[in-house]
Design a binder for these strands. Structure first.
Length: 197
DNA sequence: GTTTGGATTACT
DNA sequence: GTAATCCAAACA
């Protein structure tokens, strides 16, 4: 069941949490989302909207469920989903996936890395799934999109943590990860890396 | 026109 | 620990 745009018409923190355990499909490849981060369009100094007028323009011009993809550190594409709720707008950054289908193709794109290392970070995930700036502005929810999200029957524990790699608003607990999952980019402090002995 | 910093990764 | 590498924004 494909996820529709109303899923993204909420606040970014709820959307980020709700996306954990869902499936993302990009042509022949798919994976389960195991790590996300929320960014708010207002009051969040770590969000692009805080410093970049172009990001604020993107929020007003595009609809909920659109892809916001940008190049970071000059080298890596990072994929976000635009969130537009009645109270609050923002983005959800996709940070890690558990690969499902098309693993051979992902490994080819990722230069033969191991399964756990294919999508264990926001830059790695876009390489493995074949996403780049050319899908910036495209919708994840359009019926014509080659990239979309799907419902799953995943009953999964979700952990909350602080966001990674930012300097401003670094104390907000807006990172979400799937519990007991080894495909995340970084475990929450104190969580065992493999089933406890 | 030039400078600066960043939501990262891979390799040593 | 740090090099790789580019865009938008902020100066001048």
């Amino acid at each position: 069941m494909r996820i529709k745009s109303d899923f993204f018409q909420t606040d970014p923190v709820s959307a980020a949490r709700n996306l954990i355990g869902k499936r993302i499909v990009c042509q022949k490849c798919s994976g389960i989302i195991v790590e996300t981060e929320a960014y708010a369009a207002k009051g969040d100094e770590a969000a692009h909207t805080f410093t970049r007028p172009s990001a604020r323009e993107f929020v007003s011009k595009y609809s909920a469920g659109s892809a916001y993809v940008y190049l970071n550190y000059g080298m890596y594409w990072l994929a976000n989903v635009l969130i537009k709720g009645p109270k609050c707008n923002g983005f959800v950054l996709l940070r890690a996936l558990e690969p499902e289908n098309g693993i051979h193709l992902m490994q080819k794109r990722r230069n033969g890395k191991k399964l756990k290392d294919l999508c264990s970070g926001p830059g790695k995930l876009t390489i493995a799934m074949g996403m780049s700036g050319k899908i910036h502005g495209q919708s994840f929810t359009s019926s014509q999109s080659r990239f979309w999200f799907e419902e799953t029957h995943n009953k999964t524990g979700i952990l909350t943590d602080t966001r990674i790699g930012i300097t401003r608003s670094a104390d907000l607990p807006w990172r979400f990860l799937k519990k007991n999952n080894d495909f995340v980019s970084k475990k929450k402090a104190g969580e065992p890396s493999s089933p406890a002995p």
